[in-house]
Design a protein around this nucleic acid. Structure first.
Ligand code: MN
Ligand code: MN
Ligand code: ZN
Ligand code: ZN
Lengths: 138, 138
DNA sequence: TAGTGTATGCAATGGAAGTGCATTAATTTG
DNA sequence: CAAATTAATGCACTTCCATTGCATACACTA
């Protein structure tokens, strides 16, 4: 897939075999994934390499880290032209207690949060836990 | 302090020496504290005991756990008559990157969050990171 | 082709949460 | 009061995940 290479190159990430595969994997997932998820899929690869691949993706703004409160860091690809800016890019994350999946609700941007005087907001994490649409219909 | 005993008893927690001390410690703190904080203060006590003391406090709705994204769980006393209900009790937490303190902004309740159809919200975590009022004035 | 920088793999570390079990303290009951 | 029961504490150990150091393999350039 030349497509994948383009994506990496656009973000100044050298398209190694591993990176292409991990990117592919991320593209195919509709929900956020953990390092362990990647590790279990690419059994032949070393955990550290996968860890650093994800780290590289985050640093090059190709993906973002998600702290969903489970204690396990999740990752998801960023939207087009995302720079993880507090006012424009940050969005709500939802963690389902039943299927255990965490998803980006990219349409639900973080609402404007009023803070007490002299507080400066630089980053916001908004996570809702509950039951997702899929699990709710069962 | 008979006061302390009353607080514990009201929440059906037996007032042991350790619990009274930890409660006192929590009352004196304006910002949230970690297990390690408690451990460092009560050097003679065992970590597990302190851990379970905090756990007991949380289970009896005397305190609440705070996940501020630092990877270390914080604890803070609940407000009067708090049951950690999503609509009435949950509030914003602020983590300062400079002084590293996490505080409850109990006046800032979690705003109403609109979710996609069929999603059910059971819990919300809203953490803002940045610079607190104290650090900002320097 | 030699050389340099980057990517990968393996091993080890570190921090924090949590559990099992023995011991001690407190409470209940006969 | 003494025995029996229940609850709290202390110590050791485990598990899980993130992260780093260092050696080797690979890729690209001069
Ligand atoms: Mn996201
Ligand atoms: Mn709070
Ligand atoms: Zn679900
Ligand atoms: Zn501060």
């Amino acid at each position: 897939m030349i497509e994948l290479e383009q994506i990496l190159k656009k973000n100044n990430v050298k398209p190694t075999a591993m990176r292409l595969l991990v990117l592919q994997f991320l593209l195919n997932k509709k929900s956020a994934i953990s390092l362990t998820d990647v590790e279990e899929y690419f059994v032949k690869s070393d955990r550290t390499t996968l860890y650093r691949t994800l780290k590289t993706f985050v640093e090059s703004e190709l993906a973002h880290k998600i702290d969903d409160g489970t204690g396990v860091t999740k990752y998801a690809l960023c939207e087009e032209n995302c720079h993880c800016e507090i006012d424009t890019d940050l969005h709500l994350h939802f963690h389902c207690k039943l299927c255990n999946e965490t998803s980006c609700l990219t349409d639900h941007k973080i609402p404007n949060i009023s803070l007490p005087k002299n507080f400066i907001a630089e980053d916001v994490n908004l996570v809702v836990k509950g039951i997702c649409n899929k699990c709710n219909s069962n």
